[in-house]
Simulated scan of single mutants.
Amino acid sequence: MRPFGEITELAAERAGGIDRLEDSLLKSRASSPTEIAAIPDDRILSEMSRRVFHAGFSWKVVDAKWEAFEVGFFGFDPNACAAMSEETFDALLKNKAIIRNGAKVRSVALNARFVLDLAATHGSASRAFADWPDTDYLGLLNLLKKRASRLGGQAAMRFLRSIGKSSFITTGGGVAALIREGVLDKAPSGVRDLQAIQDAFGDWQSESGRDFTAISRILAMSVAGADAGEPGPSSVYITPSLTQRQRETPGLGGRQDAGAQADSTLAPQAGG
């Protein structure tokens, strides 16, 4: 495992210079705990749900339908989603404006209850994620795997990246770089491999002063076909709340009752 300064030099060379590398990192930087804690919990649930629906489906299709998801799931209000009735669930499965996967639709209600549980303990779910030590990334992944619904593995990693949490993602160029550096001998497949990655990231963080997100992206960009599989700036976003978009977009309309909301269709808009 070489010093991280050398890996950064390799990434800068592939990026076209250190300034271009730093500019790319700035556009997808990790957020501060204060910034994460300021995210409303309906946006936390929205991003959890987006990553759940991304898994196994075309991201472009999911994102194009996300406006309809926001309407169908009450703007991802945790209290409303946690109390989802069977009638609303059935209506969502008939709603052609969203992706009608029963297990994933059900996961929204389950994750809403998880968000409410975090809020009851920490004041808000966003505060719980903000306060979690960056050095215990695996502990946070384990929390999501055990207590959330369908948020294991890369879905959890991508969710954490989307809300600005310092994170690594085990895919594409980043994994190739970890194998090149001797941290792994193959694609990660279990807790031991993830622990080896976290340990290596901890060493590189101590050396470079960079957070896990920056380290993850530099590793990916140090490999030919830079950033392959590593979410860049266009993948890091928080969708504005439904009520915020209603204020900003004439004609978007107000909140509807559960049954009507589940059957609503809006013109698809690309997320992010």
Rank of each mutant, 00 (worst) to 15 (best):
T265M: 14
A82G: 15
S167K: 02
R158I: 08
F4T: 07
I215P: 05
K65N: 10
A120M: 12
G202Y: 11
P3E: 14
P33L: 07
W59R: 13
R217I: 09
D131C: 05
V175S: 01
A128Y: 14
S126F: 05
G229K: 01
T265W: 04
R29A: 11
L194K: 09
Q195F: 06
D90A: 14
A267S: 08
Q269C: 14
N95I: 04
P133K: 02
R192K: 15
G102S: 14
L10H: 04
V175Y: 01
G272Q: 12
I197M: 05
E248M: 13
A120K: 13
P240R: 11
A37H: 04
Q261H: 11
A220H: 07
P3M: 14
G190D: 15
S124Q: 07
M1K: 11
A37I: 00
R161Y: 12
A220G: 13
V62H: 04
Q244R: 15
K96N: 05
K94D: 14
N101P: 01
D23F: 00
N79L: 01
T265E: 11
L25C: 09
S166P: 02
G259P: 00
F129A: 02
G182K: 05
S206V: 08
Q198H: 06
F57Y: 15
V175L: 03
L92Q: 06
P3S: 14
E207Q: 13
G190E: 03
Q154V: 14
A119G: 14
F69M: 04
D41H: 08
F159S: 11
M157G: 08
P3K: 12
R106T: 05
S234M: 14
S32V: 09
K60L: 13
V71E: 11
D211Y: 07
A128T: 10
L138R: 01
R51S: 14
T88V: 09
I197S: 06
Q154W: 05
S206K: 15
K165Q: 01
D257L: 06
A258V: 03
